[in-house]
Write a protein that binds this DNA or RNA. Structure first.
Lengths: 254, 254
DNA sequence: CAGTGGTCTAGACCACCAG
DNA sequence: TGGTGGTCTAGACCACTGA
C-alpha cells in the first residue's frame, strides 16, 4: 500500500560524491531508481517535493530536477503539476535504448554463441542498403551474416552491411564480442538509429538455419545506426524466432 | 553538401512569443526541427555554438540548451563536446512516442474504419490481464475487441481490457474516435506504457477476420498503459497483418 | 489559499577536442 | 590554447491543483 505522507529515503543518499566524474544528477537518479526497484519506495508512494529534496541533499533545484526527470523518463515515476511525484503502480520497465542483441542477451545472463555465415567485402549490396549507408550503388561495402544461438539453439540471423573500412573486424572478434562492442572498441560511438520492426514468413534458407518450416512466422528488425558525427555506420536486417525473442520497451509521454 | 562554417538561420526565429503559453524552448525546438526537415539546415551542417545562439535570440543558455536537446532526442542532431552540434546525415525519424494506432493512421492520412467485435463487461478475463490491471482475478473488467481496416481492407485485431468504469464508452464512440482519444476526452492522461512486440502464426479466427491462411505470420503487440497517477488503465493485445503494418521508431543514445 | 511542478535567468567552472 | 558542450548554482516568477 502506498503511504499517505510524502516520502524520501534520505539515508540512501549519504554517499553522493562531488569529486566523482559521474554527474551528481546521475548519482541521485541511480539511487532513486534503486529505491523503487527494491521496494524502499512502494508503488503509489508520493515523493517529497523537489525543493525540499534539494535542501536536504544540499543540491540545487535544477540538479535534483534533472535526476527526477531521468527516472520519470524510465517510466518509474509520474509527475503532475500541483500534485506531486508518485511511484508508478506497476512497472516492468525496459527503457527504449540503442542496444545490441549481444549486450541484451549478455545482461540476461544467457549462454549465447555466434557463428559467422558470411564475412567479406561486396560491390553488389542491395540499393536499399547502399543508399542508407550513403555510398554509391557499386561502392564496396562490408557484408556480414551471423547466426546467433542461445544454449546452442539457433535464435536469429543477423545480416549487416558496414562501410568497407570496417572489413578488418575478424571472425574471432565477432564470435566473442558482438558487432557493437567491436565498433565501440574501434572508437565508433553510436548515437542515433532508425528501426522498423515487422514480421514475415521464413525463406527456405532461414527456415533451415533456424530449425523451422519454410513460411513459419519470423520477427524482423531493420536498423540504420549513425555515429556521433551523424554518419550512417551500420545497416542491419535481422530476423528472429518469435518463440525465442521479442522486443520489449517502455514508452513515456512528454 | 554540409557547409564548413557554423550555421544559424536567425531569420527563422523572429517570431518567438514570450506571452505564449507554449514554452520558449519548445518554440525554438519546433523551428529548429522545421529548418532541418525542410532542408534550410542541410545534413552534416554544424550549428552555431549554444552560447552564441542564446545571445542572438536573447534567451538564456539553459533555455537554448533545452531546445537543442529536444531536437537531439528526436534523432535529428548529434552533439559532441569540444566539437559542436551537427545535423544528422540521414534521417527518417519517428520518435518513440506513446501513440495510438488510430492517431498514427490519422496522421498518415489513411482512410480507416473500425468494427467493434466485442464490447462488454466480463468477470473471466485472463489472469495475465487482471494482474496487469491491478484488479482481482474475478473482478469485472471492460473487454473490447475491434477490427481495424484501412481502405476497407482488414489490417489489425485490437483486443483491450480496461477497468470496468470505462464500460460506458459506446460502440459509436469507438467507431469514430479510437480508444485513446475516448480515454483522453474522459480526462485520462496516459503517461507511461510497457509494450512487447513479437510475432506468431494466426489462429483460425484471426486468419478468417484478416483474410489470411491459418498459421500465416502476424505481428503482435501487447501493451499496458498507465495514467498520470501511475495506475494501469489499459491492457491491449493486438495483432497486425505484417504486409500492412510495421513499428518504426528512432532510438537515441543518452 | 498554500503547495506543487514548469519555466526562465545569469552567471560559474570543468572536460574534452582541435589546431 | 581557444572553443565547444557538460555540469552546477541560487535565485525568480508562473500555472495548476486541492482543500
Amino acid at each position: 500500500m502506498p503511504r499517505d505522507a510524502p516520502v524520501w529515503p534520505a539515508d540512501r543518499f549519504v554517499d553522493l560524491d562531488r569529486t566523482s566524474p559521474v554527474p551528481l544528477y546521475h548519482q541521485v537518479a541511480a539511487i532513486l531508481e534503486g529505491c523503487i526497484r527494491d521496494g524502499t519506495l512502494a508503488p503509489g508512494d508520493r515523493l517529497e517535493n523537489e525543493i525540499e529534496v534539494a535542501r536536504r541533499l544540499n543540491l540545487s533545484r535544477p540538479t535534483v530536477r534533472r535526476a527526477i526527470q531521468d527516472v520519470v523518463d524510465k517510466g518509474l515515476l509520474v509527475r503532475r503539476r500541483g500534485i506531486g511525484t508518485q511511484v508508478v503502480r506497476s512497472f516492468v520497465t525496459r527503457p527504449v535504448e540503442l542496444t545490441s542483441l549481444y549486450d541484451d542477451l549478455d545482461r540476461a545472463h544467457v549462454r549465447q554463441t555466434t557463428r559467422v555465415l558470411e564475412h567479406g567485402v561486396t560491390t553488389s549490396a542491395p540499393a536499399e542498403v547502399t543508399e542508407r549507408l550513403g555510398v554509391g550503388d557499386e561502392d564496396p561495402v562490408f557484408h556480414l551474416r551471423r547466426l546467433r544461438c542461445i544454449d546452442g539453439a539457433p535464435m536469429a540471423i543477423l545480416d549487416n552491411h558496414l562501410p568497407a573500412e570496417f572489413a578488418d573486424i575478424t571472425i574471432p572478434e565477432l564470435e566473442t564480442g558482438g558487432l557493437y562492442r567491436n565498433l565501440s572498441s574501434r572508437g565508433v560511438v553510436l548515437k542515433v538509429a532508425n528501426q522498423r520492426i515487422g514480421a514475415r514468413g521464413a525463406t527456405d534458407d532461414e527456415a533451415h538455419r533456424l530449425g523451422l518450416e519454410p513460411g513459419a512466422p519470423l520477427l524482423t528488425m531493420a536498423r540504420t545506426a549513425m555515429d556521433d558525427s551523424g554518419r550512417a555506420v551500420e545497416v542491419g536486417r535481422h530476423c528472429y524466432r518469435p518463440d525465442m525473442y521479442a522486443f520489449e520497451s517502455t514508452l513515456v509521454a512528454r
